[in-house]
Amino acid sequence: MTAGAFDTIETAALPASEAQKFEERAFGFWIYLMSDAIIFALLFATYLVMLGNTAGGPTGQLLFSLERAAAETALLLLSSVTFGFATVALALNSRLRVIQWLLVTAVLGVAFLFLEYGEFGGMIAEGAGPDRSGFLSAFFALVGTHGLHVSAGVIWIFVMIGQVLTKGLTSPVASRVMRLGLFWHFLDIIWIGIFSVVYLPGLT
């Protein structure tokens, strides 16, 4: 008899173990993060190309404030540390500590958004909105996209706080917190890029 086509692999369709399922989801999330990184790479490239195209309008030197950029950076970096503490608490299986550190992270994220909102509002009020020049269009596209990501991240932190409160630290909830952590730290890395590509050179 010829080798049966269907004999050899009989277990492949078996339900995957839970751990394996979460590992696959983490991998999927990494792929998402990488595609997001491509979006930011394009926005950074656009920003650098448009840097000189101020159309007679204000440049970064006039618009940016080092104090504000430093405060924003401090808030976001600190929030990454506090999320790290939430992850440690997760490993220690301490529900209360996870919620506490997630809350601190969310407060820091909201404070960051508050500063950024003030910055954008002030610029638009001065007539330096995204429609003023190619440089400003690129600025608002890049920094605004990061801000939208942080806003989504803050909403998501509250959703996860809700899940930890109602469901406890079950394995699906824990795996979601871990993925949210990846997202949050990723936004931190993007911000470091924005700080070093947009604000620092813009002010010197």
């Binding site: 010829t2 080798a3 049966g4 086509a5 269907f6 004999d7 009989e10 277990t11 369709a13 078996l14 339900p15 995957a16």
Partner: peptide
């Protein structure tokens, strides 16, 4: 598989599928 005559062979056993 059709040429080898195994295209429509019955599996020896079935498993749960997620």
């Amino acid at each position: 598989m059709k040429h080898r005559g195994v295209a429509y062979e019955r599996p020896k056993r079935y498993a749960d599928i997620a």
